[in-house]
């Protein structure tokens, strides 16, 4: 039990350090590495939440697809650390920190105040249940997601074709 707690705390620290690295690093490629770290941490938290299928999907989709997409775009737009400065004036950091801390403490107050009725029944949802729900009760949103992805692909292709036509 103690061992599991130690691993859990390490995973949480990895997640938070990755998030801070994503926000605070000057170069975009380091921020992207921080995002990858955060994704792996969240996948570990999903495993602690008894959802190994979601953990695998997190690693496959976020680390395998979205991060590689962003890396390709960073390759296209070039090394941004040669530009003068990624950072602006420090007043902007102070304002952003005020907004972020305000939202953090406001929602923290809500979380600490609310009385969640945590059920004591054992958690027995498996991947089979997710698939059954996806194709039984939530079929229409599932099809809508596939339609949305097709529209997004066609939109991305059309955007690149239009810009080439302008040249």
């Amino acid at each position: 039990m103690i061992f599991a707690d130690i691993i859990f705390i390490i995973i949480i620290l990895i997640t938070l350090a990755g998030a801070l690295m994503t926000v605070m690093y000057g170069s975009i490629i380091y921020a992207l590495i921080g995002l990858v770290t955060t994704m792996f941490g969240i996948a570990g938290l999903y495993i602690y939440l008894n959802a190994p299928f979601l953990a695998m999907m997190q690693i496959l989709i976020y680390v395998g697809a979205i991060t590689v997409l962003i890396a390709f775009v960073i390759m296209v737009i070039g090394p941004l650390h040669k530009k003068p400065k990624e950072w602006t004036y420090p007043l902007k950091l102070i304002i952003a920190a005020i907004v972020a801390l305000f939202s953090f403490f406001m929602f923290a107050k809500v979380v600490l105040k609310a009385k969640w009725t945590v059920l004591s029944t054992p958690f027995a949802v498996t991947t089979k249940d997710i698939g059954r729900l996806l194709f039984d009760r939530l079929t229409f949103p599932f099809e809508l997601i596939s339609l949305l992805i097709v529209v997004a692909i066609i939109g991305a292709v059309m955007l690149s074709l239009c810009s080439r036509g302008e040249k």
Binding site: A19, L35, T38, E86, A96, A100, S103, F104, F107, A108
Partner: peptide, 29 residues
């Protein structure tokens, strides 16, 4: 609280970062 910390980091990044790619990464957070 971990989800809340991710939200706060994302808001900080969206306001603070300058390039559009960094803002997109923060929205993913």
């Amino acid at each position: 609280f971990v989800g809340l910390a991710l939200l706060a980091c994302g808001i900080l990044g969206v306001i603070y970062r300058r390039t559009l790619v960094s803002m997109l990464i923060s929205i993913e957070l």
